[in-house]
Structure formats: C-alpha cells, structure tokens
Amino acid sequence: MPHIIVEYTDNLRKEADIPNLLKELNSVLISRSDIFPTGGIRSRAFELKDYRIADGAENDAFVHTILKIGSGRSDLDKKGVCDELFEVIKGHFTDLFARRYLALSMELIEFIEAGTYKHNNIHKRFRNS
C-alpha cells in the first residue's frame, strides 16, 4: 500500500494523458516515503465505457481517484497527502476543465491490517538502496 485507482470516462481518452497523471501521482507518494514505502506504491487506471453523468444531455466527463492505504497514518498525514494528490489532479486537468464539462473527485479508503494480505519482494530493492 498505497494504491491509486483512477476511473475516467472514455470521452477523455485522447486528451487526458492518463499515463502521465499516474506518474505525477506516484511522484507525490514517493516524495512521502517516510509514511508510504516506495515498494508498495501501485497505480492503475480504468477507462469507463458504460456510464451516465447528470441528465446525459451533454458530453460530460469525470475522473474519480481512489487512494487506498493501510491504517496507521495520522490524520494530518492523510490530509496532507490527499490535499497534495488532489492539487496534482486538478493541475493535470486545468486545460480540459476550462474547455469542457468535467467533474474531478477523490476519496480515501483506509484498511485495517487484519483485512489485507500482502506478499511483496519489491520492498527489498528499496531497503538495499
């Protein structure tokens, strides 16, 4: 953990540069390696083909980001990282937001350790650096 999941409507495909967004979001988490181990960071995006927004009358679009983390971070740390991630998301879509109807949102999901299972040898690479 942490995992970032980005859901976005397919009408953004050509202009959204989702791979770069994932890179930007990962960079935020990597910069906070004191609270999020780099080897646990995962990000992925899903293009949505079946959706309806509002009344369906316009070519509306949305991007919804979910940050999933294990428990144990302070409220201050959680707020800080969420604020920074959401600023990155808003910055990434500034031009599109100015040109079209677009909803941006983000949520935090915090798991208790008893509810997660992990088997990961990627951490070892970062411990040896």
Rank of each mutant, 00 (worst) to 15 (best):
S74A: 04
V81L: 14
L85F: 10
V88Q: 04
V63Q: 05
D83M: 06
V81H: 05
M106Q: 10
E110M: 07
I69Y: 05
L96P: 06
H64L: 08
F62W: 06
L108Y: 10
F93M: 03
L104H: 02
G72A: 10
S105Q: 01
L96I: 12
K90Y: 05
S71Q: 08
I89D: 00
I69H: 07
E107D: 07
T65P: 01
A98D: 07
H64Q: 04
D83L: 11
E110I: 12
G72K: 06
V81W: 04
S74M: 05
V88A: 02
R73E: 05
I112A: 15
F93I: 02
A103L: 11
L102T: 08
K90N: 08
A61Q: 11
F97P: 00
L76E: 11
R73D: 05
I69P: 00
L85D: 01
F86Q: 02
K68N: 11
V81T: 09
F111K: 06
A98P: 01
I89Q: 01
I109M: 13
E107Y: 11
L85I: 14
N59I: 02
L104Q: 01
L96A: 07
K79T: 10
E58H: 14
D75H: 12
F111W: 08
M106V: 01
S105G: 15
H64G: 02
K79R: 15
E87G: 00
